[in-house]
Amino acid sequence: MGLKAYIVRRTIYNVILLFFVLTLNFLIFQWMPGDPVAIIASSKRLRPEQVESLKKLFGLDKPLYIRYINYIRNMFTWQFGYSYYSLKPVREEIMARLPNTLLLMGTSTLLAIVIGTAIGVIAAYKRGKLFDVISVTTSLLTYALPTFWMGMIFLLVFGYYLRLFPLAGTMSRPPPEGLLPQVVDMLRHLFLPATTLFLFSYGTYVLLMRSALLEVLTEDYIVTAKAKGLDERTILFKHALRNALLPLITEAAMAFGLLFSGAILTETVFSWEGMGTLLWNAIEFQDYPILQAIFYIIAVSVIGANFIADILYGFVDPRIKYD
């Protein structure tokens, strides 16, 4: 079977998967307790006819199957309805947060992949030496440290004691005048959360790259290369590294798939106005339309990223047969 047929088959499979996830996403929030309209009504002292119009606005006056059909249609047309809490369109709320999250997650993920991989390669090259031991131990430690705790410590040391970075938020309020000061201000706010996320995730790439390389280095063709008298560096970069990159693709695809989800814990510690804090606030306020929308976006991006990774695999490794 060729690549084209494979892509077609994967696409069909992924659409079915997405459909199932959509249904699950619908059912979870049907099953959740609490009537949000009742909550709004009691907190804002609404008259019965206003309650009715609210129900209409959220489409809660219709039977379950109609709501399900509406829900599916809305998801495919990216119409997510209105937030129960702020009564604003969900799309507006998400679009306000998405750039911040992409900035935070994008920076930290890219840094983690590049630096983590580099450290992993060096660690494999110097296996058993001090650098190897230290880099493996530190990546395990930063992986095991709870992100929110790391964030608290950073805030305490760099924000509170040393006063190098702001304590909370995405930008100063009011924002400084001029483009350059604004960029600098943003970067100052970005530094601590991005570092926290970077430290949390880079270890995965160190360990992954290191073990993949060491695994490849036991293969026959490496022995052959050694027998040919090639030096260690050429073997590592020309022969081993390319093949060791394969597991990295899956891992990186997964990380990119989660770009949109934001990081609930890190964003909460640093009061970063991203998708993570939006999600957590939505859970606290039982704001189901926002939760549904975010879950949907994450599902689509994860499925998409995995799909791309599957295809990329084929290009990078011609040994793989699609079947």
Binding site: L17, F20, W31, I264, L279, W280, I283, I294, F295, I303
Partner: peptide
Amino acid sequence: TDMLLVLPTLPLLLVLTAV
């Protein structure tokens, strides 16, 4: 399994615990 893998773990955990 795929379905559960696609949904983000921590948010799902939070929602279910809240429920």
